[in-house]
């Protein structure tokens, strides 16, 4: 075939290519902006801003998760996922409240297990700031039970698989 035409076509295609990636997403989140990949499963966290959970350490280091489920997997096996960190190094743990999509203190949150709302990794522990919110959600979305932060054990996690 004739090369000049092919090269002209190539120039055209190359010129077109940038418009393919021209799509820009404005950063919608306020406050904590999800970044990096999940410290447990490696998924890209900013892709799922509605579920992003974060652990902040005393020294300012952060670990992001694409959902509360991976957050708890991490917390329950810190030795495996962050060998250099201790539980007492953790300054704060934050999850996104389902109804407001704003970060709340994970230790004070209530989690609904077994609902029909799926997270990025399937079944999720859906977080709420208050217990009445969790109760309403449980009713609306056929949840099984409400668990506070302290009562989430490796056995609870088994039920999510």
């Amino acid at each position: 075939m004739n090369r000049p035409l092919i090269s002209l076509l190539n120039v055209l295609l190359l010129a077109l290519a940038p418009t393919l990636w021209a799509d820009t997403h404005p950063a919608a989140a306020k406050g904590l902006v999800p970044k990096g990949s999940c410290a447990v499963c490696g998924m890209h966290v900013p892709k799922f801003p509605d579920w992003a959970a974060v652990v902040t350490f005393q020294d300012g280091g952060q670990a992001w998760f694409d959902g509360p489920k991976d957050l708890f997997t991490y917390l329950q096996d810190l030795k495996r996922y962050a060998p250099k960190r201790q539980a007492q190094d953790i300054a704060s743990i934050q999850v996104k409240s389902y109804y407001t999509l704003k970060h709340i203190d994970a230790r004070k949150a209530f989690y609904v297990l077994g609902s029909d709302v799926m997270g990025p990794m399937g079944k999720e522990l859906v977080p709420f700031a208050t217990e009445p919110q969790a109760r309403d959600f449980l009713k609306d979305h056929r949840g099984q039970k409400i668990i506070p932060f302290q009562e989430i054990t490796p056995a609870t996690m088994k039920a999510l698989e």
Binding site: D50, Y98, Y99, T100, L101, K102, V117, D140, H141
Partner: peptide
């Protein structure tokens, strides 16, 4: 709505 996922509910 706080969470658009809840709109249908």
């Amino acid at each position: 709505a706080g969470n658009p996922r809840e709109l249908t509910t």
